[in-house]
């Protein structure tokens, strides 16, 4: 044991030893999410609801477009005499005539609403991640005492937040998508669920998941770096 002190290790040796293999880091992050399930669900819940809100707003906008297209299409076919107008059609066409003026206003409102959705989503995610980092100051301090580098701690948090963001925003999208789709299935009928619907859904889904993950990641940067840079003694002193 006493022989350890004789030859100080070279810098390259130090570097090699302190690097945590990526696989191991992912393992620790997953374990950390799983074991802190209650906390993780609340964190994920914030992300999930934010993305669900955003998705539902975007989906509503999409359905409004689809409905417009359908009405326009049927109107053209009725005017051409190839389609016999039903009672529903007459109502829809009459409504769309009135709506035409308001259409632009409605589209604008939806755009604003989806921006609002994004803001709500960002605040929710930032809050959840800040809490989840703050709660673990002591653990971070302990890990640093055991020889963890700042970068390693940040890495652990990033992997964790990316995993959490990915899962939560995927679920959030499914939730928002399902809710709006069911409502529109009742209101518009099967006709609205054509190719444009599926294409739009896939596009929106990819966007929502990518955005949710990215926002979670961004929201983790500041608190994780701040926590990792604390001197261990300060991190250990923190009482939550």
């Amino acid at each position: 044991m006493n022989s350890k002190s004789s030859a100080p290790p070279s810098r390259s040796e130090i570097k090699r030893q302190i690097q945590l293999p990526f696989r191991k880091a992912v393992e620790i992050s997953i374990k950390s999410i799983r074991i802190r399930m209650g906390r993780s669900i609340i964190t994920a819940g914030g992300i999930l609801l934010g993305i669900a809100f955003f998705s539902s707003v975007r989906m509503s906008a999409m359905f409004a477009d689809i409905q417009n297209e359908i009405t326009k299409d049927r109107k053209a076919r009725i005017q051409a005499g190839t389609l016999k107008p039903t009672e529903k059609d007459t109502k829809l066409i009459a409504a769309s005539a009135v709506d035409a003026v308001e259409e632009r206003g409605a589209a604008n409102r939806l755009k604003w609403l989806s921006i609002m959705g994004l803001i709500v989503c960002t605040v929710g995610i930032a809050n959840a991640m800040l809490m989840s980092v703050t709660e673990r100051y002591k653990e971070i301090g302990t890990m640093k005492c055991l020889g963890a580098l700042d970068s390693l701690i940040v890495k652990l948090f990033f992997i964790e937040s990316c995993l959490l963001g990915l899962i939560a925003s995927a679920l959030g999208f499914v939730l928002g998508w399902l809710a709006v789709s069911v409502v529109n299935l009742v209101v518009l009928g099967l006709e609205a669920f054509g190719l444009p619907f599926w294409l739009g859904s896939v596009q929106l889904g990819l966007f929502a998941v990518a955005m949710g993950t990215a926002l979670t990641f961004v929201a983790t940067i500041a608190p994780a770096i701040r926590a990792a840079q604390m001197p261990p003694a300060a991190a250990l002193r923190v009482e939550i």
């Binding site: 350890k4 002190s5 290790p9 810098r11 130090i14 570097k15 030893q17 302190i18 302990t142 640093k144 005492c145 055991l146 020889g147 963890a148 580098l149 700042d150 261990p232 250990l236």
Partner: peptide, 17 residues
């Protein structure tokens, strides 16, 4: 430096709280 300090905490010192 930070890396050497981490190495020291890891290999040379054990902490009990």
């Amino acid at each position: 430096d930070a890396q050497e300090l981490a190495y020291l905490r890891c290999h040379t010192i054990g902490y009990i709280f």
